[in-house]
Lab assay of single mutants.
Amino acid sequence: DRMTSQEAACFPDIISGPQQTQKVFLFIRNRTLQLWLDNPKIQLTFEATLQQLEAPYNSDTVLVHRVHSYLERHGLINF
């Protein structure tokens, strides 16, 4: 699994950072998509996403918020 070119453009700090940071991003992105796909008729809020993310992935709330906002803005969740 890899970041898309659009994700890389929107998250230059992640793509240029350590490999582990990219893996954390990918986990948060994929898990958020999975959470929404589990029940697409219900809006997936940032707060609900954060509550359902497993530790330690829920510890970087800023990154979780950025990923959630990106997915929502680009019509990948909550459409």
Rank of each mutant, 00 (worst) to 15 (best):
V64I: 11
Q43R: 14
F79T: 08
F27V: 15
D38H: 10
Q20S: 13
I15Q: 15
D13G: 04
D1I: 07
H65N: 10
S59A: 14
E7K: 02
I42W: 08
Q51P: 04
F46G: 06
H65P: 01
A55T: 12
E47V: 07
E47T: 07
N58I: 04
E54K: 11
K41F: 09
L33I: 13
H74K: 15
I14N: 02
H68A: 00
Y57G: 05
I42N: 11
V62G: 14
Q20P: 10
R29H: 00
R31G: 04
P12K: 07
A48V: 08
G75Q: 10
L71F: 02
T21C: 12
P12S: 09
L71I: 02
G75P: 00
Q19I: 15
I28H: 02
T4R: 04
Q43V: 13
A48S: 13
T4D: 15
A9T: 08
R31H: 11
D13E: 15
N58H: 09
E7M: 02
V24N: 10
T45H: 04
I42F: 14
I28Q: 00
L76I: 15
N78H: 00
H65S: 13
L76E: 12
N39V: 03
T45W: 01
N58D: 07
E72Q: 09
R31E: 04
R66F: 03
N58L: 05
T32L: 13
Q19S: 15
L50C: 08
L44F: 02
H65T: 06
A48W: 10
W36V: 02
T45G: 06
C10I: 08
P12I: 05
N30I: 03
R66T: 03
D60C: 06
F25S: 02
T4E: 05
Q52V: 09
A9F: 10
T21I: 11
S5A: 13
D13S: 03
T61A: 09
L37A: 14
A9V: 11
A55R: 10
H68Q: 01
F46A: 13
D38W: 07
L35H: 03
Q51K: 15
K41V: 11
Q20H: 14
Q6M: 08
L76Y: 10
N39L: 04
F79V: 11
R29C: 01
P56C: 04
Q20I: 15
C10P: 00
F27G: 14
F27R: 13
E54R: 11
R31Y: 08
E7D: 11
F25C: 01
N39H: 15
M3Q: 01
I77A: 00
P18I: 09
V64Y: 03
R31I: 13
W36D: 03
G17Q: 06
T45C: 04
I77V: 05
H74P: 00
S69E: 12
H65C: 11
R66S: 05
V67E: 01
T61D: 09
E72I: 09
V62K: 08
Q34R: 11
I28R: 00
G17M: 07
H74S: 12
A8W: 07
D60K: 07
H68P: 02
D13K: 04
D60I: 03
W36L: 02
Q22G: 05
G17F: 03
P56V: 03
L37C: 11
V24H: 14
D13V: 03
E47M: 07
H65D: 07
V62Y: 06
S5T: 12
G75C: 08
L71N: 00
T49L: 14
Q6G: 10
I14L: 08
I42K: 13
P40I: 04
R29S: 00
F11C: 02
D38T: 11
L44W: 04
E72F: 04
C10Y: 08
V24C: 09
L44S: 03
L37W: 10
R73A: 15
P18N: 12
R66H: 05
Q43F: 15
Y57H: 06
Q43S: 13
Q19G: 12
D38V: 09
Q6V: 09
P40N: 05
E47G: 08
L63A: 04
Q34E: 08
P40V: 06
V67H: 01
V24D: 14
F27H: 09
T61L: 08
I77K: 01
E7P: 00
A55I: 08
T21Q: 14
I14P: 01
Q6N: 11
V64D: 01
D60M: 11
L53G: 02
N78L: 03
Q43H: 14
I77L: 03
A9S: 10
L44A: 03
P56Y: 04
T49A: 11
V62F: 06
E47A: 08
N58V: 05
L44M: 04
W36I: 00
C10A: 14
A9Y: 06
Q22P: 03
E54S: 12
V62P: 09
Y70H: 05
T21A: 13
N78M: 01
F27T: 12
K41A: 14
L44G: 02
S69R: 13
S5V: 11
R31L: 08
G17L: 06
L63T: 05
K23T: 13
N39R: 06
P56G: 05
Q52C: 13
T61P: 13
W36K: 02
F11R: 00
H65I: 03
S16D: 07
P18A: 10
L53W: 02
V64M: 01
P12D: 08
I14D: 02
D60H: 07
I42C: 12
T21N: 15
H74M: 12
T21D: 12
L63N: 01
Q34T: 08
Y70F: 11
F11I: 02
T61E: 10
T45Q: 04
Q52A: 14
L26H: 07
F11L: 03
I42G: 12
F25Y: 09
L44T: 03
K23F: 09
A9E: 11
T45A: 04
E47Q: 12
Q6T: 12
F79I: 06
L35V: 06
T61H: 09
Q6H: 07
T21G: 13
Q22S: 06
F27Y: 09
V67A: 03
R73Q: 15
R2I: 15
G75W: 06
V64E: 01
Q51F: 09
Q19H: 15
R31D: 01
L53E: 00
F46C: 11
T21R: 13
L44P: 00
F25N: 02
N39F: 05
N58P: 04
L71R: 00
H68Y: 11
H65L: 08
T32G: 03
T21P: 07
Q43I: 11
N58T: 10
H74Q: 14
T49G: 03
L50P: 02
F11G: 04
P18D: 09
Q19K: 13
Q22I: 14
Q52E: 12
L26W: 07
D60G: 04
R31W: 06
Q22M: 15
